Amino acid sequence: MGQEFTAKSFKSGNSVAIRIPAGLGVEPDREWSAEWVDGDLHLKAKDKPKPKIDVSGFAGKAPGIRLAPREDFEGRPSTIAAHEAADLE
């Protein structure tokens, strides 16, 4: 097996914490699930969340492209009137 380290539990607010030695190579800010199994503490790393793409800067990058009309709902009457007025021009 690998190298063995000793860690001591301590009180942290209303919780009990255990510091993980850096020699184990655990990366910071990672989520873990913990459970008791027959008197042993088992830790499992949770999957990292998928990175999110910021699309806020994409608007206006392709002038002249018109979006396909949405047909899954009816728009507001004011929006429908504005579209009809724009089509008349």
Rank of each mutant, 00 (worst) to 15 (best):
M1F: 11
M1L: 11
G2P: 13
G2L: 08
E4I: 05
E4Y: 03
F5S: 06
F5L: 07
F5Y: 15
F5N: 06
A7N: 04
S9K: 12
F10W: 09
K11L: 07
K11N: 04
G13Q: 09
G13H: 09
G13R: 09
G13L: 04
G13F: 08
N14D: 11
V16P: 00
V16C: 04
A17I: 05
I18D: 00
I18E: 00
R19N: 12
R19S: 14
P21V: 04
P21Q: 02
A22M: 08
A22G: 10
G23K: 09
G23P: 01
G25P: 07
G25H: 06
V26H: 02
E27Q: 12
P28R: 06
P28V: 03
D29A: 10
D29C: 07
R30G: 01
W32I: 07
S33G: 13
A34H: 05
A34P: 01
E35V: 10
E35A: 13
W36P: 01
W36H: 02
V37W: 01
D38W: 01
D38Y: 05
D38F: 02
G39V: 07
G39A: 06
H42C: 06
H42W: 11
K44C: 05
K46S: 10
K46F: 02
K46R: 15
K46P: 00
K46I: 07
D47L: 11
D47F: 04
D47V: 09
P49V: 05
P49A: 07
K50F: 04
K50L: 14
P51Q: 09
P51C: 09
P51G: 08
I53T: 15
D54G: 03
D54N: 15
V55P: 00
V55I: 12
V55F: 14
S56A: 10
G57F: 03
G57V: 08
F58K: 02
F58D: 06
F58Q: 08
F58E: 03
G60K: 09
G60F: 07
K61T: 12
K61E: 10
A62Q: 12
G64P: 08
G64V: 09
G64T: 07
I65T: 14
I65D: 03
I65A: 10
R66T: 14
R66E: 10
A68N: 11
P69Q: 12
P69V: 10
P69F: 04
P69Y: 05
P69L: 07
R70P: 00
E71N: 14
E71R: 15
D72N: 15
F73H: 15
F73Q: 05
F73G: 01
F73D: 00
E74K: 14
E74M: 06
R76D: 11
R76L: 13
P77S: 10
P77W: 02
S78V: 13
S78C: 05
A81H: 05
A82N: 08
A82V: 06
H83D: 05
E84S: 08
E84H: 11
E84A: 13
D87Q: 12
L88Y: 01
L88S: 14
E89T: 06
